[in-house]
Amino acid sequence: MVDKLDKSNLDLSVEIAGVKLKNPVVTASGTCGFGREFLPYYSLAAIGAITTKGVCLNPKEGNKTPRVAETPAGMLNAIGLQNPGVNYFVENELPNIKKYDTKIIVNIFGETVEEYCQVAEILSETDIDMLELNISCPNIKCGGISFGTEPKMAEEITSSVKKRSKKPVVVKLSPNVTDITEIAKAVENGGADCISMINTLIGMRIDIKTKRPVLKNNTGGLSGAAIKPVAVRMIWQVRNAGIKLPIIGMGGITNGDDAVELMLAGANAVAVGTAAFNDPKTVLKVIDGISDYMFENNIKSVSEITGAVKAWE
């Protein structure tokens, strides 16, 4: 018999690609800007890491509005990757994040392999902890199909960035594929240090009165509670396919139990996105909820949860 745990003795820390996070809860890219807006609600020091809004080489203005629409238990977004560019980030936003004792994951994207590499090089010279590649973007040199939907392209972008990055590379998988395990294997072959999953699922809403799509971009990415079962399934499939890389799981997490579900499926850490729009303090609730689960189930280290699902034969 193990002695009952003391809540203050729980070990919530996780190590991902050599980076130690004080707890497994991070923010999801694009849902917390560069952290500033959440400061009235919690200190960035409370979370394992902040994942920034995606940045590319030059400033990008994004799509026309409406950029968002509510959907059952979720939302669609087509922000269009609006961002001030990597250099602005380094000069004006990074110093602010550095004031807090947390790890920094910078989400990056580009239109070409070369752009990803250039952004990675610039960030390699700064004091950040990890890069996260958003490979759900269109590759303009290949007719605009997304880097993340074709195994060869996913492998190429991963290996190219790995060659030129001095920081660990997390590759963020798109769920808009037939077989997620193929893409996961491809980025593992490409040398990824970690996988994050899932990005948004492409969806659409139409206003039946005007017969117009609700989003000006016509389609958008579905996120929020509605996509959680898809995230759980995909993480589980990737683990079952024998992929050993650490996984940052995301998709529809609103509380500690949701986070535990993704971890049982195989995630080492979790990210909270859309739920923060309704309650900016969701990350704190998730951290508390994971602790409660550990306490109630006599789990000493949070890593014990990872992959502990007992799947039916």
């Binding site: 694009g30 800007g33 809004k53 994004g62 509005t65 950029r67 968002v68 629409a69 922000i79 900016p280």
Partner: peptide, 15 residues
């Protein structure tokens, strides 16, 4: 404009 976060983080409601 249609809003999502209402705190300036998500960049949904730009004009």
């Amino acid at each position: 404009e249609r809003m999502a976060c209402g705190i300036g983080a998500c960049l949904a409601c730009v004009c």
